[in-house]
Design a protein around this nucleic acid. Structure first.
Lengths: 402, 402
DNA sequence: ACTATTTCGTCATGGCCGTTTACAAATTAG
DNA sequence: CTAATTTGTAAACGGCCATGACGAAATAGT
């Protein structure tokens, strides 16, 4: 009943479980976990009314979840209301943890998140990875990983899986980095390089950022576009609460949507792609700056200081983003757009021209554009939480491991 | 247990059913129906091995389906192999039927499809509906509807629901035509105008066309874009075997993806939308022709005759389509693109420039573009089949009606 | 203070549903 | 003509949730 070392990507609460009585039980265990996680400490009776089962049924489900260490009994609730007080249940702060990792262009990071959603351990290393070959980078990441895991284990947690965010395209097998231009990696199978003891999931940083927004954002809708950028511009397409990945796993390549079809050539083979107008390199060039270390910080700083060249460059990028997003919105009709990653930090100077462009091209009220409050933390948190979600979505799969 | 008069749109076999033992049974009934429908006459034992249940369980499921008239026992199979021959089961050719209807710009059509997928009755009326007000059109449609239903009833069928394809945007309530520019309809609630005795679903003709392609196409993948055009250009986005509809139900508006952001103004408020280059009106204008009755036929005829103006106009439309599709493909990463509706008839003159444009803008192998073999029949068939699918997806919901 | 009322958690019982096991029926292989 | 194989059904079984009853623990009312 333990997960295979390389399990399929979780796709959300409605994840396919066999249509047998055991499957039904497993889905009901998941519903209990989700109810307790989402609505704080809850009594068995409260859970029962939330998920539509009887108190008796919930009792046995909860027993099982407590036995396997996924739920904790906090003890009697403060009365306040008439009747016997319930016994508060909470998601366990010990037990399985989701390990998230991020391979950024300028840093490596690992963190451990418990079932409650709290970050319990983390490790970061700054320094560029541009052009480094995969092996030493993964070796370094593995060291951080070991640190975080031992730290987590000291706190009574055990790793339920590892999810890695990378700045590039990932095949649908969820192990192989097909292309990461900023690292200059091609067809790197992380499953072969990382320690085999963890159930591994690899995905695009934009995707994990979008999931973080979905799960952690204040009032993020279930249908939105999460746009993020390092050098490339990627979008996570969240449709009805789950990611749209495409047949090959390459969906969301907003950066290569044609904006001016006769514009400059792009590495992708096309012409006038969004990346040629709103990519980091293009913006830096338009602003008359050089490629350096902390490029986003540099742009934000200059813009804040009133540098008109930088502001003009960012306005131009916003306009181009607006054109590309108009196309995306017409195709997908989402409830909103969220700017994340590097774009979040530059939002003050991008948003006005972006929103103007959207308004200009839309009849009726334009699609609301908001800024992620997770900022650069998004992908890492999304990765760790994706493991946590997988546990919540099928608690029975991890039972008997801790 | 009968469906409410205005039921929610079916979303596919995995449609939400309560997670109780009854729900499990209902899902298993559906799995039996789908297995028998998809793989021709099948014995109980064959069904059992296909869907992973035991012969005993399948026996009771089949009994129930035969009692309610959804399955038929054809009698003993030709032996050929060792062992007792099974008793062949087939989907019933009597019982529930899906009624599909289409409100086209130039015609009205209604048909009845049985559970086997065969068209058992149909009625068509030619003549433009452009600018006619909804009431008389619906009145006329209702007459066709009554004809088809009585014809179907003569053959032992009863209508399980009505699905209507319209050339415009439909709200997510699946009753209201928000905007149909070619008819000049706005906010028309078909639920109020059509007879209330049928469970009603209304959707965009592009969407139904895409579903028809998914269900009836020879080897159509589960992930594709189905592009169709009358005057507007719409796309059905089929993702993992189900339609992407968007929050408001407006997804797939390919016609308003910006192609040349500084191009001519469009009714949508934008500039340089695809419709300005590949819409019927734009193509006719580019070819130096007038708007008449059978516009597609006219274009196809002239192009076939070698009219260079028309051919040039169509090449231009193909190029514009290629630019807009490049954006869509980068966002959605589908397995293929299918040209349907009016575009299917013009494909010979659109495809070369369209594919050239895709190839020019894509690194690696370009996304395969194919032409629907359903042609103008697609939306009508898709509508009728959507009702049939709803029955197959939850056979218990219709039990006890016929 | 004491009782009635309300709510919680649990237990025994029952019904639903697929599985297991066994068996008769119908065919082929030898 | 017998052995082997496969099909369909029936009976017993086990898992799972619902029902109904009960004790426990709180409040509300007198």
């Amino acid at each position: 009943m333990t997960a295979p070392p390389h399990e399929a990507r979780p796709t959300g609460p409605a994840r396919a479980l066999p249509d047998t009585q055991q499957g039904m039980r497993r889905r009901n265990l998941a519903r209990v976990m989700h109810a307790v996680r989402a609505e704080g400490p809850l009594s068995r009776a409260a859970v029962a009314s939330r998920i539509g089962l009887t108190r008796a049924a919930v009792s046995t489900l909860v027993d099982e979840l407590i036995r396997t260490g996924l739920l904790e009994e906090l003890g009697p609730e403060r009365p306040g209301r008439v009747g016997r007080p319930g016994s508060a249940l909470a998601v366990s702060g010990r037990g399985p943890a989701g390990i998230g990792a991020e391979i950024g262009v300028d840093h490596l990071a690992v963190c451990a998140v418990d079932l409650r959603g709290e970050v319990r351990a983390r490790a970061v290393r700054h320094g560029t990875n541009r052009g480094r070959s995969p092996e030493p980078v993964i070796e370094e990441l593995t060291r951080l990983l070991r640190e975080v895991v031992t730290e987590a284990e000291r706190e009574g947690l055990w790793p339920a899986g590892l999810a890695v965010a990378v700045p590039g395209l990932v095949a649908r097998d969820a192990h192989t980095v097909v292309r990461a231009p900023n690292l200059d990696w091609h067809d790197v199978d992380l499953g072969a390089l990382l320690p085999g003891e963890f159930a591994l999931t690899v995905d695009n940083e934009a995707n994990f950022g979008g999931l973080a927004e979905l799960w952690l954002g204040a009032d993020t809708p279930r249908d939105f576009l999460h746009v993020s950028a390092e050098i490339g511009i990627g979008a996570a397409l969240v449709v009805d609460g789950s990611l749209l990945r495409g047949t090959r796993g390459f969906a969301g390549e907003l950066g290569h949507v044609p904006v001016h079809p006769d514009g400059p050539e792009c590495v992708c083979g096309g012409r006038g792609c969004l990346e040629q107008y709103a990519g980091e390199e293009a913006v830096l060039r338009a602003a008359g700056l050089e490629l350096g270390e902390d490029r986003v910080g540099l742009l934000a700083g200059r813009a804040a200081d009133g540098d008109e060249d930088v502001r003009r460059a960012l306005r131009g990028a916003g306009t181009a983003l607006g054109i590309a997003l108009t196309g995306a919105l017409n195709l997908l009709d989402p409830e909103g757009v969220v700017l994340g990653g590097a774009l979040a930090g530059l939002a003050p100077w991008l948003l006005p021209s972006l929103e103007a462009e959207l308004a200009r091209r839309t009849a009726g009220p334009p699609c609301p554009v908001s800024v992620s409050r997770l900022g650069p933390e998004g992908p890492l948190l999304g990765a760790a939480h994706s493991v946590v979600r997988a546990v919540l979505d099928d608690p029975a799969a991890v039972a008997g491991r801790g």
